[in-house]
């Protein structure tokens, strides 16, 4: 089974602020074995669905299972790629269109590992983590989002 102490909570209430991302980058300046970072930022898109514009996404999740899945994906990435560092944050609750809902940050000595790992993580997250998204319209109606 899982070592519960190693399982981190990936979820952040609401949008992920640009300041949090900047601070996270700054924290790596002391890690001088790193030569490359890659970052993926997911942003809530104002899609037009049935002539109505999405104004926000409301995320919910099976939080405990999702954190287990994030843990497994992290472990897989650490074994597949030569990484110095990896951070993942995902929003839960309401995130307005234009705001950041996913922050994946990988670091390695050379660019290939950081870049390949970042792409791997994003693709795995989309397929394996039980997160659900309600696309909200201005008139308070909604539809449920499904990853393609």
């Amino acid at each position: 089974m899982f070592d519960k102490k190693k399982i981190k909570n990936v979820f952040v209430e609401g949008a992920i602020s640009p300041e949090k991302i900047a601070t996270s980058i700054a924290h790596h300046q002391v890690k001088t074995n790193i030569g490359a970072h890659d970052i993926f930022l997911g942003q809530v898109r104002a899609d037009i669905i049935n002539e109505k514009e999405v104004v926000a996404m409301e995320y919910s999740a099976h939080v405990e299972m999702a954190n287990h899945e994030f843990y497994k994906i992290r472990e897989m990435a650490f074994s597949k790629f030569n990484l110095s560092c990896m951070h993942i944050y995902h929003s839960i609750g309401k995130v307005n269109a234009g705001e950041i809902c996913l922050f994946v940050f990988t670091s390695s000595a050379h660019r290939k590992d950081a870049m390949d790992a970042c792409r791997f993580l994003v693709e795995e997250i989309k397929v394996k983590v039980p997160i659900f998204g309600k696309e909200l319209f201005a008139d308070e109606s909604h539809v449920w989002k499904v990853n393609k």
Partner: peptide, 25 residues
């Protein structure tokens, strides 16, 4: 908390979750 459409040993089951399509990211 593991994707599985059947139960092997009912005594070990503590939870069943129904998960609609994922939308993370």
């Amino acid at each position: 908390q593991e994707i599985n459409n059947s139960i092997k040993d009912i005594d070990t089951v503590t939870e069943i979750a129904l998960l609609p399509p994922f939308a993370g990211g």
